[in-house]
């Protein structure tokens, strides 16, 4: 390929498309591996808490509703999460995934950053305070 001097290159640049992306109006698709918001799937979770124990930011909590029946709720703090992906690696049951689509996570209220995952009745119980903070501790039973 022929090499250009800077002058030739600059003149060519004048007529080229700019490199700047006009972001909200145009956007490139995100790569498949992009680490966005964490998602938790209650099916298969054993409550081993390996995910929460090694989370560098303490961003994920597994709240036990009923240990025997394997009923858990995950509380995820998107504002603390550093999107490292360690929890996804740690979970041997494939309960955790990171979305490559959800990455524009700005919000006006802090509450938006605390996300509950789990079966609806369980989450409601946690929200209503039936499960106290103590019993919701992360310690593996």
């Amino acid at each position: 390929m022929k090499r250009h001097t800077l002058l030739q290159y600059a003149i060519r640049s004048l007529f080229r498309r700019t490199a700047t992306q006009r972001y909200p109006a145009e956007r490139t698709p995100t790569p498949e591996r992009l680490r966005g918001t964490l998602h938790w799937n209650p099916d298969g979770c054993t409550g081993c808490c390996l995910c929460s124990k090694e989370c560098p930011a303490n961003a994920i909590e597994i709240i036990t509703i009923d240990k025997a029946a394997k009923q858990f709720v995950a509380r995820y703090h998107a504002d603390r999460c550093i999107y490292c992906g360690q929890c996804v690696i740690n979970c041997r049951f494939g309960c955790l995934t990171m979305s490559s689509e959800e990455w524009e996570n700005a919000a006006l209220q802090k509450q938006a950053f605390t996300v509950y995952y789990g079966d609806v009745p369980n989450v409601e119980r946690v929200l209503e305070g039936f499960v106290t903070q103590d019993s919701a501790s992360n310690s593996p039973a």
Partner: peptide
């Protein structure tokens, strides 16, 4: 603007 275009920016 011209400067920006030379530098491949929007300007």
């Amino acid at each position: 603007k011209l400067m920006a275009r030379v530098q491949n920016r929007v300007g």
